[in-house]
Amino acid sequence: MSASAVSPARTSRGSYSDPRESPATEVLRTGNGVRDLNPATQLSLAGGLALTAVLFGPLCMVIVVTICLVLSALAGRARPFLTLFTRTILILGIAIVALQTFFVPGTTELFSWWLFTATAEGLAAGIQIASRVLGVGASVILLIQILNLDRLVLDMEQRGMSPRATYVITATVNIIPQMRKQMGVIMDAQKSRGVETDSNLWVRTQAFVPTIGPLILNSIMGVEEKALTLESRGFSATGTRTSLRYVEDRPRDKRLRVLIVCALVAIIGVRIVLWIL
């Protein structure tokens, strides 16, 4: 095939051009200090906090959750952080403590309720597990609040991840709202055929089967056209791809990541010493 006017010099398969080389590229920023940290720094930060919570349990849980809350507030996301945390992780933590307290056998009885007996050993085990769950959960929720998918994918591209891998990640995340829209169309179609979809739980459950079937079939049938569409738009073309935007990895990000790694080494060291003693 002849090269057309759109085909610049090609180098290796699946790499990206350095976006900083062109004045037509732009930095992808949100305007917030925490959310504008490099995604690798954000991942390191959340990972470090989660690991600390796992290693130290109740000792550090409060500190980890507080740091997560403060960072969320600095990112302007304190309210969604607290909402998500209290509706998911906190409830899970309380459930773990309650179940452990009543179902882990022990010799020290705290109190009895109906058929169940709360034990001090169960309570201690519950606090140990729940504190780790709370710490890891808070770190994950922090990450959800500060990490932007577009910036993460761009950063991975800049670090050499293959376009196919970044496509899979982005398409997987985006497929949920797309399928929700398709689901709406199918539900409207089923309603027009007399299938009841807006009523009590039993009726909704009955409507689920005639809705989910076409959704899955449509999705399977759409895969072939989607693949061919991508091919038509040069997705499998070899050579360097263009980036229109880029994510900064500033010196402060690199310093912060070094600091996180040093802190983690120190924390692991302290944990080992505490285990030995």
Binding site: P8, S22, A24, R233, G239, T242, L244
Partner: peptide
């Protein structure tokens, strides 16, 4: 619209 041109490695200014 830019997706296909990016895959073919067209320079950013030309894409825009």
């Amino acid at each position: 619209l830019a997706f296909g041109l990016r895959n073919l490695g067209v320079p950013p200014a030309q894409i825009r």
